[in-house]
């Protein structure tokens, strides 16, 4: 029988040493600088699309963090992003509460939702957990549509409250999403070095060993789902703000699968550049293919298979190449 954990094509720390780490850091800083300047040079529609791209990148991170730290796969993360999105949208439309006041409750509710889901499913793993997240994803649009008094039902809600009054709204949408994305990647980089992060990583591959050093399996599961749910809620919150509308069509079963596709395509990476790859994949491909929508699932499917199979065959291929070179 094969093992439970998702196999990861690349190891997180490049052990060739610090040099490549530093060059990666420089690349990240350059990318951040470019992202900061971009709205000055590109057209308005692109600024809007990139804002959504950043928000989706956060969603991709929420799935990747579950894979990296929990060894689990979710196809139901739209549930948590919907929680965040509707928290922001409802607080905005009902009470006129601006984003900086509605993001903390959105995050908190996402964490709580993650924990509430993790608790009854704490003993499930692998495909059993994946199937129960599937059920979660299916219930989302239905719940939103039926709670139309609160959620605006099929038509959804319009988020209009500015974050900083007086600044151009399109810029606010862009920079707010970028700021939250950067904050999430920063927080995840810290998590990797923290005591809790170490314990979670050990628990993923050797739950019995983690248990023997004081990190219960149930604790690990609940913690990972809480973190992941919180990040997904941030994704929803930023989708609501950057996209300015929230409706059930954004939280379908397919949207949940696409988040997973984005996570796979970014090779479950937790850094800013990797998250951007995933987010761009989810946002920009539909943008380019908007005229021929039927190609989107095909392309996503091919990309998903391509990355997974590359993760499988590439290491073997390089090994074989190395052997041939060594022999010659």
């Amino acid at each position: 029988m094969s093992d439970q954990n998702v196999s990861l094509p690349l190891s997180p720390v490049d052990q060739a040493g610090w040099r490549s780490l530093i060059s990666a850091q420089v690349g990240t800083w350059l990318l951040i600088a470019v992202a900061l300047c971009l709205p000055l040079v590109v057209a308005g529609s692109w600024v809007f699309a990139l804002g959504i791209c950043f928000a989706n990148a956060i969603g991709v991170l929420s799935v990747s963090v579950l894979v990296r730290y929990g060894g689990e796969v979710s196809i139901g993360h739209t549930f948590f992003s919907a929680v965040g999105a509707y928290t922001v949208a409802i607080l905005d439309t009902r009470f006129g509460i601006p984003l900086w006041l509605s993001v903390p409750p959105a995050l908190a509710l996402g964490v709580v939702a993650g924990i509430l889901f993790a608790w009854p499913s704490r003993r499930l793993s692998g495909i059993y957990l994946a199937v129960s997240t599937l059920a979660l994803a299916l219930a989302v649009p239905e719940i939103i549509n039926n709670a139309d008094g609160l959620t605006g039902g099929y038509e959804g809600l319009y988020v209009s409250e500015p974050l900083v009054p007086g600044v151009k709204m399109s810029l606010q949408r862009y920079y707010a999403a970028l700021a939250v994305l950067l904050a999430v990647t920063y927080g995840l980089a810290r998590l990797r070095r923290s005591r809790q992060g170490l314990a979670l990583l050990l628990s993923k591959s050797h739950p019995a060993a983690a248990d023997a050093f004081g990190a219960r399996q149930v604790w690990a599961r609940v913690a990972v789902m809480g973190i992941s749910g919180g990040i997904a809620a941030l994704c929803g919150a930023m989708l609501a703000f950057a996209g300015s509308t929230v409706s059930p069509s954004g939280f379908t079963f397919w949207a949940a699968i696409f988040l997973l596709v984005g996570s796979v395509v970014s090779v479950y990476g937790l850094t800013f550049p990797r998250a951007l790859i995933g987010g761009a994949f989810l946002t920009l491909i539909p943008q380019f293919l908007s005229a021929s929508g039927a190609w989107i699932p095909v392309l996503y499917g091919v990309a998903l298979l391509g990355v997974i199979l590359a993760g499988h065959y590439l290491p073997r291929l390089t090994q074989a190449m190395g052997r041939r070179k060594g022999g010659a």
Partner: peptide, 27 residues
């Protein structure tokens, strides 16, 4: 041992039970 962690980090887990900084410190 966790293959995601360096040797040092793997050993650090051995002292984790003596430390109690909260979740905010993790992020």
């Amino acid at each position: 041992l966790s293959l995601d962690l360096t040797v040092l980090e793997n050993v650090m887990i051995g002292v984790a039970r003596n430390h109690h900084a909260g979740w905010l410190n993790a992020f």
